[in-house]
Design a protein around this nucleic acid. Structure first.
Lengths: 341, 341
DNA sequence: GACGACTGTGGGAGCGCTCCCACACTGTGT
DNA sequence: ACACAGTGTGGGAGCGCTCCCACAGTCGTC
């Protein structure tokens, strides 16, 4: 086809060795960047590699070395939160960026139900990836423990609790929420409500804590009826907003723990005849497409998702390489101010 | 750890064979569902497999059989269109669904520039995947040809021209656009403008053709000044809308070839004091998150992206298995009617 | 001048599978 | 009785690498 090697097949280590006039072991050393190869030989081998267009056979290498140079990204398929727009692609982009300069390949795995996740661990046991990236793990998910048992290095995104034991990368939900609330205070708002996520989700809890802390730090007492629990859905946001308007009709700002809930809140506010931001300022969380295209465009807390993907990957590669030690990164969030506040 | 096999390692074929009291070959036959194994033996082997928790070693299999049971999904990283929201995740979901019942794994590859794509083909040459799924391929992209040279089965999404030679899966852009326009006509609109995508993109061309055909079929002459060329960006949509309002201030409907351009058009219409849909009806294309959250919610043409992913995958697996013959699927689009029209 | 320590290097062994040939063993037809 | 096709089955020979042991060569040292 392209003149390389013998008939049909791609060139092998052996052929490169023959061409360079050295032994198999030497070529292997050069390919793997081992030391202990003389300059002279190295150059000769590299020339042979180039001439033959040699590319190591991944399967053979994996078999012999008992590693795969592949990591898996496990995706909770049915979950709206993750598949919802930018999250997924940004994580992938970050992971891809971290992997770009390595020879490690990314295997994507969709696994929704707990049963599927069990099956997956069986699968991972045989199909052998060197490590696993777990996104959006719930408390009670069996997968992390199964992976630990199998001795497969794992990094998760988002802590499951304050006492997360697994290596994890998270954004600073508390600080992000606090910044959002501080921003509303700075804008002169005084009756600031919040719509939280489900409180058994650690991140949602953190965002609520941020809300509380920002108010407290500014010397305001927290008025509990200004807190309504949502579920990260638009309808949930709407319902929570309805409650809030009933309980505290005089509120002049709302911090929603997700953009989608903010969208629901906006609908409800409109229905109640409140103008945004004149009557009520609105801030969301996630800085999703929804935020940019809302009317008015939504002020929102942006998580460094791509960077989280990158950090997770770097961390995982480190652990595969045998590093232990500190393994919990918390990345800063950033408030993106738009017209809604 | 869990009592399986010998110390440390996972069980091998050999061990299963010993346990079942048969030869290696026989176990292999059972594992691979080959015929020519007596019922009795098969049962015994399956029992041994279950007892030992045997999972075939992927690398060994790949090496011996000279196939990898993996396919690559190549993603044009920097491209907004693809990474923009649901597209990516839906494709992945479709591919995942088609792969779920197979043993084939999905390898994700990000490759932006042409140079990166060349590097990628080199990489793929290392016999790392059995086939490749190419999303969002432009005319002039070198990758398809490189893959063809390497003899790697490939399926692309979206034809590059009417005379696409590669196996491809596309949505019926022409019919979708025509339906959108017909819908506007049904709503009593008479002066229907369109904002197209870049016309060197085949899909954009098809959508324009659909616009023309629908008007022609309804007995309307196509008024060329009602056609403005955009570039799939919001700003482009805005600019095109401005042109249209200048040339044909009396227009009462706009069909934009993408939701994002429709969002731009909407902004411009608002700025010009036109109400949607009372003064001007607006229809987009893609049914993205933007459409659902626009104000008013945007009528849009929905592509069966997940199904496209599934179809591509099925097609690719077929070709890997040696099927040839017909290889171009065109899936129907569906108009999702909302308040903007 | 003999000895060890070190540096490069070659190549055997083996990773866990699939492929395929050889070999029972059965049954049928002559 | 014989040959002869058909079934299952066992196991050798690799697939292309890495690992590691052995060994040649070089140098410094006693």
């Amino acid at each position: 086809m392209n003149g390389h090697g013998r008939s049909g097949g791609r060139p092998t280590l052996e052929e490169v060795a023959a061409r360079a006039g050295v032994g198999r072991g030497t070529v292997s050393r050069v390919i793997n960047g081992s030391s202990k190869v003389s300059e002279h030989t190295r150059v000769a081998v590299e020339a042979a590699v180039a001439e033959l267009g040699y590319v190591p056979n991944r399967a053979a290498r994996a078999l012999a070395a008992n590693r795969t140079d592949a990591i898996a990204l496990v995706i909770p398929e049915p979950e709206a939160r993750f598949f919802a727009e930018p999250y997924f692609s940004e994580v992938v982009r970050g992971v891809g960026a971290a992997l770009a300069e390595t020879e490690v390949q990314l295997v994507l795995t969709l696994a929704g139900s707990d049963r599927e996740r069990r099956r997956l661990s069986h699968y991972l046991a045989g199909h052998r990836v060197d490590g696993v990236l777990l996104v959006s793990v719930h408390a009670g998910d069996p997968l992390p423990e199964l992976l630990a048992e199998l001795g497969i290095p794992t990094v998760i995104s988002g802590r499951r609790s304050a006492a997360e034991t697994l290596p994890s990368v998270d954004s600073d939900n508390l600080a992000g929420a606090a910044e959002a609330v501080r921003h509303l205070l700075d804008r002169g708002r005084r009756t600031i409500a919040t719509i939280t996520g489900p409180l058994d989700v650690y991140g949602a809890q953190c965002r609520l804590d941020g809300y509380r802390q920002a108010l407290a730090a500014a010397g305001h007492a927290v008025d509990e009826p200004l807190i309504a629990v949502g579920d990260f859905t638009e309808e949930g946001g709407r319902r929570a907003m309805r409650e809030l308007l009933e309980r505290r009709p005089a509120l002049d700002a709302v911090f929603a723990a997700s953009d989608v809930m903010a969208a629901g809140a906006r609908r409800e506010l409109r229905a109640a005849g409140r103008r945004i931001p004149q009557d009520v300022a609105l801030v969301g969380f996630d800085d999703s497409v929804v935020a940019r295209h809302m009317d008015p465009p939504l002020t929102s807390v942006r998580q460094p998702i791509e960077e989280m993907g990158r950090t997770m990957t770097t961390m995982l590669l480190g652990r595969i390489a045998g590093e232990t030690g500190e393994a919990a990164a918390v990345l800063p969030n950033r408030l993106v101010v738009r017209e809604s506040s």
